[in-house]
Simulated scan of single mutants.
Amino acid sequence: MKRLIFTADDLGLAPETNEAIERAHREGVLTAASLMVGEAGFEEGVRVARANPGLAVGLHLTLTDGVPVLPAAQIPGLTQKNGRFRDDMAALGLLLALSPVARAELAAEVAAQVERFMATGLGCDHVNAHKHYHLHPLIAAALMQAAAGAGVRCIRLPWEPQALVRAVDPASPRTAEWALGPWCRTLRRRALNWNLMAPDRVVGLAWSGHFGTARLRGVLPRLPDGVTELYFHPAVAGGFPGSAAGYDYTGELAALCDPAVGEALAGVERGGYAAMLLPKPLPPLS
């Protein structure tokens, strides 16, 4: 049986992303969003979530290219002089492997972001990380532990079948499936130890920032049974603070609101992570 999760990352990043996510849910097929809790649009993102109870909202853990929740002075190994997170992901990953102090800072910041999300009163549908930084084993471990401790049950593990995306668009950028596949299977086993479930596959990695209407229309009839997450970065305009150069934000919003996509999903089960992944409660006995 085919079950689909349509997720937008970067809720809370900026007014442009918040508006687009609300529109894509109300007027399109979007079923979930991942909230950044340290960015300028956080409060407005929470308002969007509260105003749209059918939108399943989770935590978009941010440890690079963003703003920490803790004061930068408390986590100097993770931050730059300007107070923002470091952007040298490989070097920071190495530091985490070598430094117990940096690992303690990581654990503290992850816990603080989970706590800030929980303080909103929203139910946390899932967790994932900005730029999929939770593929780093130490970040994955910290996130899984904090999420499970807060009662979260679902996580994104970004394994994307290359045959699927290239069947739609042979010119699609290649991702390192040879490494991602085995590593995501390892992370899936580790997640299960924390009672965390993940979709069977993810679509959007190779097309990040360019998951437009033609690609979405092309991939939907090719999706196999099981739970597939399709993730997007919609915004009503580009060029906002924190935006990624070259991303077709409005094209991704148009894909999510495309009437033909809605028609193609008639009869297909879709929702948030928990709704698609977790066993449904039995009805009460009469």
Rank of each mutant, 00 (worst) to 15 (best):
R190P: 04
Q162G: 10
S208T: 15
L278N: 14
A260S: 14
A150C: 09
P281L: 05
L278C: 11
P53V: 05
G246H: 09
H25V: 15
L4D: 11
R47C: 12
D88V: 10
V29D: 08
K280Q: 04
R215F: 14
L277H: 09
A51T: 07
E39W: 02
P199A: 00
A56H: 04
P281W: 00
R188T: 02
P224T: 11
P137D: 14
P241W: 01
V37L: 00
Q113I: 01
R84V: 06
L143D: 09
A198R: 00
A40L: 12
D9W: 14
V202R: 03
T250G: 05
L11P: 01
V202Y: 11
A260R: 14
E27P: 04
D225K: 01
G204V: 03
R50V: 05
A245C: 06
L55K: 04
L253I: 04
D248H: 08
A146F: 06
R222V: 06
L70S: 02
L94N: 01
P281H: 07
M276E: 10
A147K: 13
A111L: 02
E269C: 06
D258K: 06
P137M: 08
A112H: 10
V46C: 07
A163K: 09
P182E: 07
A111G: 08
L143F: 12
G262L: 09
L96I: 15
G93Y: 11
L95N: 01
G271F: 01
L220R: 03
S172L: 15
G238H: 11
L277N: 11
E105Q: 07
Y247N: 10
N128D: 15
T64E: 10
A111M: 02
E16A: 15
P283C: 12
W207F: 15
F42W: 13
G246T: 14
Q162K: 09
L106I: 12
L256Q: 03
H25Q: 09
G38L: 14
L55S: 02
G181R: 03
L277W: 12
T62K: 01
Y249F: 15
G226E: 08
T228A: 01
A40W: 05
R217N: 02
A104E: 10
L30F: 09
K2S: 07
D88Q: 15
Y133G: 12
A198S: 03
I75L: 04
R156K: 13
H60G: 02
G121C: 00
G151I: 11
P76F: 08
R47A: 13
V48K: 00
V46H: 06
M197V: 13
A108V: 07
C184D: 09
T213L: 12
C257S: 00
L216P: 03
R84C: 08
I139P: 06
M276T: 15
R153E: 06
A107H: 01
A129W: 07
W159F: 13
I139M: 10
G121H: 00
A235F: 00
A147R: 07
L282P: 07
Q113G: 02
G239D: 01
S286G: 06
R188N: 03
A90D: 01
D87T: 14
A167C: 04
T120K: 01
A264L: 05
S286R: 09
L96W: 12
L164G: 02
R190C: 15
C257T: 06
K2V: 14
G271K: 09
